[in-house]
Amino acid sequence: MPGVGGASEAERTNLDPPMSERFRFNARDFPYWLVAILLALAWMGYLILTNDQYGTAFDRIEPGLTTTIRATITGFGFALVIGLIAGLGRISKNVVVRNLAITYIEFVRGVPILVLISMTAFVIVPQLSDALGFDNSTVDFFWRAAIALALIYGAYLAEVFRAGIESVPTGQSEAGRSLGLSAGQTMRKIVLPQAVRNMTPAIGNDLIAMLKDSSLLSVLGIRELTQENKIYTSATFQYKPGYLVLTFFYLTMTLILSLLLRAYRKYLGLTDA
């Protein structure tokens, strides 16, 4: 009996390759794509630093950066909450709750994001202000935009949460229930911690997607990066510097997020191409 555990432990340690092999150059796995993108970013950065036209474009667009980041973080924070609630509703045994959740998810998934953003700002919020009796004008456009992003991505994240929860084997909740934990305790202490681990890559992908989709908020006139670029280029016709700088901003942010996500996937032991 004691020999059994020992043998399998020895096998496990052998799975870790020695340090020298881990850092050996591997021509097949080398991230050439990353070098290409970094070179493109370096070229854009060089233009911004050395060329006045690009420097001006950068200075004119840069003020939108905080709004882009703020809208993304605010929207995503609320989207996570909505997504969790809708995702739990989606797998609820209660027919009414389940159908409410599916209705919301399918509605949002069936309408273009651009349409939903305008609809939230110009229809849903005013209608709510009528129904709930608050003054429509107190909700500024940044908040309308954040609500729109939260509602849209809440529906996308609901499916991520559903899939994440369903990825945890039923034996896990059966074990929890057998120990006397209630359904809610089992969900919080056993299922969700494992589900979130499985979901993190998908949540990260949605965060990157939302960062990019925040550019659509320019239809509301919110002065995020894309709107600042629109204002700048329509006044100066400097399309090439404007769009190149705009691309530089988005690509830098998405690349950082994407690399963080890859590092996390590697940490979880998921394979990555």
Binding site: P169, Q172, A175, R177, S178, L179, G180, S182, Q194
Partner: peptide
């Protein structure tokens, strides 16, 4: 009824074929 079930399950231990330990 779930309140009954939780009370009974507290007093009944269950061991599964697949162990079902919590991996986290």
């Amino acid at each position: 009824k779930s309140s009954d079930l939780d009370a009974i399950r507290e007093e009944v231990g269950m061991v599964f074929q697949q162990f079902n330990l919590f991996p986290h």
